[in-house]
Write a protein that binds this DNA or RNA. Structure first.
Length: 486
RNA sequence: GGCGUCAUGGCCGAGUGGCUAGGCUGGGCUCUGCAAAAGCUCCCACAGCGGUUCGAAUCCGCUUGACGCCUCCA
């Protein structure tokens, strides 16, 4: 297997990926808090890791991909209540009804974007016992303290022997100086300390018994517990959005270290933000666009509807570690390129082989793998795939040739990268009525050919123009006329 | 205020110390009844100011600007 470079945010360098166990990959990605609809920015992160998951599978790794559902414990701004409970009260539903509603939404959206489901999708509420056990271990190890029914992680104590800030590159001493002291209501010894367990006030709906009384777990605990349970005390990759680096992932490291006395993760991977109007998409600020609004075009930021495939292609054209700015012109440009690529891929099936090859297929194929092996560089991969698009058209025109073996390699490689690695789908396959439609269009093409043979340009152009208003484009070539549906 | 990231041609977006990313748009040509599609081709950018180097968009420093995190967020 060729070397695969991964940018590790722990070292801020590209490193050669060496799995803990040869041939196996353990990957944990922080999933959503299911208290509202996922927006396009959330989708980008999961889509990036879907691509990474797909590539590992493609090159032959056995992957256990764990992605959690946060259905409890995620605290609101004022730290008084968790998000699920707040939403439950607002919508007058059971917390688990909120969880169910938005979990289903999450799954449906990701499916539309052709994301593969993870191997395991554990929930925070399903691991309360494990979380309590882990908190007891941390208490026993002297790195947490209980006050008034809540348990907090003792960051300063931890920092005496370990490095709190190893991931986010913060220095705890400076952080203390720069932390605003809000008021005296907190039980924490130090503002940097974070909750492992929170006491539930009487009005709090989600609550569980614990050695410290009735309460609920802190946000960071679930990921530590579930990653350990399903991937081990040490595992290969932990991913998530850039904005989770601090405090969430920093806390995860501290918790795992406090429990198991070992650094939990070999490679930390962080995906960058999707912006709109130059600002991060965010649920709280309202600067976001929902997937369904993309599909219907019903959002002031876009001029028309776009398919999930186009949106996926748009995101794959940028590197996962770069900020990507969403705009109507950007996604419209991506759509054109996407359609051109898909048309070529479809045309590829009809190509015929020759006695000689005029293209070095194996060299090109290697370039595709080199791109992906360099920290999953999908923009470079797509650039190479557009070389393939060009060749497909040229072979079709008889200006380039491939032998039977080369053509076979070529087809397999294109299909592998376009469909299996990038996870794109061919739009025409989604068209249920495509058989009937193409039958009708073929009739019109035949009628138009008769008109053209009779030099009846008025009729032939009328057929062509009226079809184009329906989004059906005729393409006259040497071998006759074909069409595409937009 | 602290920490961090980034500044690329009309737009979107890759990138290595010297050799054309790619997509979209626009111009020209081929093909075509005319178009479209497809192909070929042109428009050779790298925030500013210094420095290192035979040579830097790519390394270093400073300036300016943008964004992210520090408080819930993928």
């Amino acid at each position: 297997m060729q070397d695969l470079l991964i940018y590790n945010t722990l070292s801020n360098k590209k490193e050669v990926f060496k799995p803990l166990k040869e041939g196996y990959v353990g990957m944990y990605v922080c999933g959503p808090t299911v208290y509202s609809n996922v927006h396009l920015g959330n989708v980008r992160t999961f889509m990036s890791f879907d691509m990474i998951y797909r590539y590992f599978l493609h090159v032959g790794y056995k992957v256990r991909y764990v992605r959690n559902i946060t259905d409890a414990g995620h605290l609101t701004d004022d730290n008084s209540e968790d998000k699920i409970s707040t939403k439950a009260r607002l919508e007058q539903l059971e917390p688990m009804e909120i969880v169910q509603k938005y979990t289903i939404d999450f799954h449906e959206i990701l499916k539309k974007f052709n994301n593969l489901p993870p191997s395991i999708e554990p929930t925070a509420t399903g691991h309360i016992i494990e979380q309590i056990e882990a908190i007891e271990t941390i208490l026993k190890n002297g790195l947490a303290y209980e006050i008034n029914g809540s348990v907090y992680f003792d960051v300063l104590k931890y920092n005496e022997t370990e490095n709190y800030g190893i991931l986010s590159k913060r220095k705890i001493e400076e952080a203390i100086e720069n932390t605003r002291v809000l008021d005296g209501q907190s039980d924490k010894k130090n503002p940097q300390d974070f909750a492992l367990w929170k006491k539930a006030e009487p009005e709090h709906i989600q609550r569980w018994d614990s050695p410290w009384g009735v309460g609920f777990p802190g946000w960071h605990m679930e990921c530590t517990v579930m990653s350990t349970k399903y991937l081990g005390k040490e595992f290969d990759i932990h991913g998530g959005g850039m904005d989770l680096k601090f405090p969430h992932h920093e806390c995860e490291i501290a918790q795992a270290q406090a429990c198991n006395h070992v650094a939990p993760v070999k490679y930390w991977m962080h995906t960058n933000m999707l912006t709109m109007n130059g600002r991060k998409m965010s649920k709280s600020t309202g600067n976001n666009i929902l997937p369904d609004e993309i599909f219907t075009g019903d959002n002031k930021h876009i001029s028309k509807a776009y398919t999930a495939g186009v949106a996926r292609f748009f995101m794959m054209q940028a590197h996962y570690r770069s900020i990507l700015d969403f705009s109507d012109t950007a996604i419209a440009a991506a759509e054109k390129g996407y359609v051109r690529m898909m048309d070529a891929v479809e045309l590829m099936d009809k190509l015929e082989f020759s006695a000689k090859s005029s293209i070095d297929v194996n060299k090109w194929k290697q370039k595709c793998y080199d791109a992906m092996n360099d920290d999953f560089n999908t923009p470079i991969l797509i650039a190479h795939l557009f070389d393939a698009v060009k060749w497909i058209n040229l072979i079709n025109d008889g200006k380039e040739t491939l032998t039977e073996i080369d053509l076979d390699t070529f087809r397999t490689t294109v299909n592998d990268f376009v469909f299996h690695v990038l996870g794109l789908e061919n739009i025409s396959e989604n068209n249920v009525d495509s058989d009937k439609l193409s039958g009708v269009v073929e009739i019109l093409i035949k009628l138009r050919k008769e008109a053209r043979d009779n030099k009846d340009w008025v009729l032939s152009d009328q057929i062509r123009d009226e079809l184009i208003t329906l989004g059906i484009q005729l393409k006259d070539g040497k071998e006759g006329t074909t069409f595409s549906v937009n």
